[in-house]
């Protein structure tokens, strides 16, 4: 098949949307945290914990949706840990974030080994199955790509709409955005900046964990060590690329996923002339490139990474 023809096949776009789904969840999660003024570098570890928690719930006999819920709760718990250290205590968001990633990852691996001491190959579960939407799914290419996915992918798109609606159309969203831009103004309204930020980080982290769980209970059917493989860091780049806007970040995630799906197919048709590692490097290199491209016009939330203390100016 020709390298360009791939772009017009439905199966390619179905794969791209599937690859985008975990990124969409986690990018929305990080976006909420950062809009409230907190950089959450715990994302990589929280996704790992979510991937395990979701899978393990289903493996232990739970419902698939119970898996999603447990993952979200585990994520929120790590989010609260992160928020407690960075918001009221005002500790370095860089150091705490890396610490939360190390802790969530190591706790996950510890629990996995404790729960399944003798296992050599990871056990499989019955994951979410594709649920074609009648009518819409028969539209060529676009309909197939968007509407023959699993329920969790549909939820990813719903989460973008929900995040956008809450951020721009509700008082809570206004308070979150203001906490990231001008926290004293929030406090002047009698709203607690600490409360808003902690809530935002908890909810954002829950979304990150669901993104992780997508990998184990929708895209694949088991849990592997190192399966997040830098996706969390890529999501941080996607938030910047999307100028902290849910819609733009969604487009970024889909473009990125399309590129990722494309490199896998190029790898197959290149016939091994180019080492496969070159293709695997591309997503990471692309993320760095995207950061450089948008850096000049990036307008960070003004209070991002600046701790807030009541009564201080």
């Amino acid at each position: 098949m020709d390298a360009l023809d791939i772009l017009f096949t439905a199966s390619f776009w179905v794969a791209a949307i599937r690859i985008a789904s975990p990124l969409i969840f986690a990018t929305m999660g990080e976006l909420i945290c950062e809009r409230a003024g907190v950089l959450n570098l715990g994302i990589e570890g929280i996704m790992t914990a979510g991937a395990f928690a979701g899978w393990f719930t289903v493996y232990s006999g739970g419902d698939l949706w119970a898996g999603v819920l447990v993952a979200a709760l585990v994520g929120a718990m790590f989010g609260l840990l992160h928020a407690t250290l960075t918001v009221p205590l005002g500790l370095s968001q860089h150091v705490v974030g890396i610490g939360v990633t190390l802790l969530a990852t190591s706790l996950t691996y510890f629990t996995y080994r404790l729960a399944l001491p003798e296992v050599t190959s990871p056990p499989k579960i019955e994951p979410f199955q594709p649920l074609p939407i009648p009518g819409l799914s028969s539209i060529p290419v676009v309909g197939e790509a968007l509407f023959t996915q699993t329920p969790l992918t549909y939820l990813a798109f719903v989460s973008v709409a929900a995040v956008a609606w809450i951020l721009y159309r509700t008082p809570v969203g206004l308070a979150v955005r203001a906490a990231g831009e001008n926290p004293s103004a929030v406090e002047a309204q009698g709203i607690s900046v600490t409360g808003i930020r902690m809530g935002a980080v908890a909810v954002g982290s829950a979304l990150m964990a669901v993104g992780g769980a997508f990998l184990t209970i929708s895209a694949f059917n088991s849990f592997f060590f190192q399966m997040i493989n830098g996706r969390g860091w890529i999501c941080i780049a996607l938030v910047v690329f999307g100028s902290w806007r849910p819609g733009k970040a969604l487009i970024g995630a889909i473009l990125f996923a399309a590129f990722d799906a494309y490199q896998v197919r190029l790898q197959q048709i290149s016939g091994g002339i180019v080492p496969y590692q070159v293709f695997l490097m591309m997503p990471y290199a692309l993320s760095i490139l995207a950061l450089i491209l948008v850096a000049r016009r990036a307008t960070y939330p003004k209070a991002l990474m600046i701790p807030y203390q009541k009564g201080e100016r």
Partner: peptide
């Protein structure tokens, strides 16, 4: 599991800050 070492090291980072 020996991963307890990684947990201890990560926890000590957070308690230390």
């Amino acid at each position: 599991p020996s991963y307890i070492a990684d947990v201890m090291v990560a926890t000590s980072l957070l308690t230390m800050v």
